[in-house]
Write a protein that binds this DNA or RNA. Structure first.
Length: 425
RNA sequence: GGAGACCUGCUCGAGUGGUUGAAGAGGCACGCCUGGAAAGUGUGUAUACCCCUAAAGGGUAUCAAGGGUUCGAAUCCCUUGGUCUCCGCCA
């Protein structure tokens, strides 16, 4: 959530920038400010009354010590009256505070000045395009046919085991998953990221910390018996590692990477767009996360973008980098770059990574702070990106590299996969 | 799953109802001492919110989390979470 202080001091600017995100309820900003005023008033009233209670209680203690029971009784009555007054104030204070946070979390992060105006995906700005679109041979087919021809992903049996959208990888298909995960992790570790293997379920506090709760509850699988959520991305457990902590300035930037399966309900998706591996309920992903000094986060974002780009280049895939427009960005992001690879047989671009700077929006909720040069406690900035999500990369690798009787893998994967190509079994 | 012990500040650790935000030790920071360092020595060392603010100052809350008893709770009671030990079960 946004920092109250920022919101109060730059009300006009906040509203202007929210407009870039097509935010429909700018009046929430005014609401937050008036709730905060109310909160302060109540807080002062509560504190001063509580102070009277505290000092009277101390006096009672001293009177009792001196054996002046009657005087103590008089004080006790006084305290009882004060406490009777305190109760409704306290109730109002709690109510106001919770209404304040409820309102504040409904206001999205402010877009950075680099974010272009726009309403939908078509308004995103292509900032870079690289690699070459392959020329496919005559009998080329989309990946959902290839996986059957080569018998490497079995959706039908996955559906039998769980439901639609839960692919069962088999043989070379399973091994390719493992090879890619291993390669991506090694690539990230070489760039200074520390590897983590996090829990695949998280509690409510963690889901709230990265912003999946309260607004995106329906997107996560929920284990009701234990009140755990299956993670939609390892960003959730990994960013939460430092929740409620104050780190030392010299620890920054903290660079973390993690592999995890990701679970997404994807309620409401259907149709050709989501065929095959284009959209599934469970998929493998390697994520990178950084916690940085607030002055360094955009520098870090550029590094992360270059890092992911290098990965796509090494996979010899045609790709492009988009800067998302205000209307297409996520609620919590200040600036997002999406990476898409070209799927030659489908003749469309598929998103394989989304790399964002959240500034202090997430860390304000999670209270991840550091001590700056002057000894002041400040929020760090958080960033994350996929490097990479597997299914769509796999779709592209299969489609773009298909030959008459085999699928040739990029050189960088040969040692991880153990062979240079996938053959029909 | 059953039985029990426990959860205090950066760390260790005292504290079983009354000026305890919390003794003591260690660590860390700064100063003194030193040619320099070690040793020694002095001082400081939480977070959030609020009032007042130029600064200083003051208040409230926080001893796993939440609730309760009490004029008063780190201390008593309840719930939840976590750690450890023993038993059971198990990849």
């Amino acid at each position: 959530m946004l920092q109250l202080q920022v919101l109060r001091q730059n009300e006009r600017e906040v509203k202007d920038r929210l407009a870039v995100k097509n935010f429909k309820n700018p009046e929430l900003v005014d609401e937050v400010i008036s709730l905060d005023d109310q909160r302060k008033k109540l807080q002062l009233e509560y504190d001063t009354t509580q102070q009277q209670v505290n000092s009277a209680s101390k006096e009672i203690g001293m009177l009792m010590g001196k054996g002046e029971k009657d005087a103590a009784e008089v004080k006790k009555k006084e305290v009882a009256e004060l406490k009777a007054r305190l109760q409704p104030i306290n109730e109002q204070l709690i109510a106001t505070e919770s209404k304040l946070t409820d309102t504040l979390v409904q206001i999205p992060n402010l877009p950075s000045p680099l974010v272009p105006n726009g309403n939908s995906a078509s308004d995103n700005e292509v900032v870079k395009e690289g690699g070459e679109k392959p020329g496919l041979h005559a009998g080329s087919v989309p990946h959902w046919d290839l996986i059957k021809q080569y018998d490497i992903v079995d959706f039908e049996t996955g559906a039998k085991l769980t439901g639609s959208g839960f692919p069962l990888y088999k043989g070379a298909g399973a091994k390719l998953q493992r090879a890619l995960v291993q390669y991506f992790l090694d690539y990230n570790i070489a760039a200074g990221y520390t590897e983590y293997l996090p829990p695949f379920m998280v509690n409510e506090a963690s889901a709230y910390g990265t912003g999946q709760l309260p607004d995106k509850e329906g997107q996560m699988y929920h284990m009701q018996l234990d009140n755990f959520y299956m993670i939609p991305t390892s960003e959730v457990p990994v960013t939460n590692i430092y929740r409620d902590e104050i780190v030392k300035a010299e620890q920054l930037p903290i660079k973390m990477t993690a592999y995890s399966p990701c679970f997404r309900r994807e309620a409401g998706s259907f149709g050709k767009e989501v065929r095959g591996l284009n959209r599934v309920h469970q998929f493998e992903k390697v994520e990178i996360v950084q916690l940085t000094h607030p002055d360094k986060s955009y520098e870090a974002l550029d590094q992360m973008v270059a890092h992911v780009e290098g990965l796509l280049k090494s996979l010899e895939s045609p790709y492009r980098i988009l800067r998302l427009c205000g209307g297409d960005m996520s609620f919590t992001s200040a600036l997002t770059y999406d990476f898409e690879v070209y799927s030659a047989a489908q003749e469309r671009w598929l998103e394989v990574s989304s790399t964002s700077n959240f500034e202090s929006y997430q860390t304000n909720r999670m209270k991840i702070r550091f001590k700056d040069e002057n000894g002041k406690t400040q929020l760090v900035h958080s960033l994350n990106g996929s490097s990479l999500a597997l299914p769509r990369i796999v779709a592209c690798l299969l489609e773009n590299n298909q030959k008459e009787n085999e699928i040739v893998l990029p050189a960088v994967l040969h040692s991880y996969f153990g062979k240079s190509a996938i053959q029909k079994s």
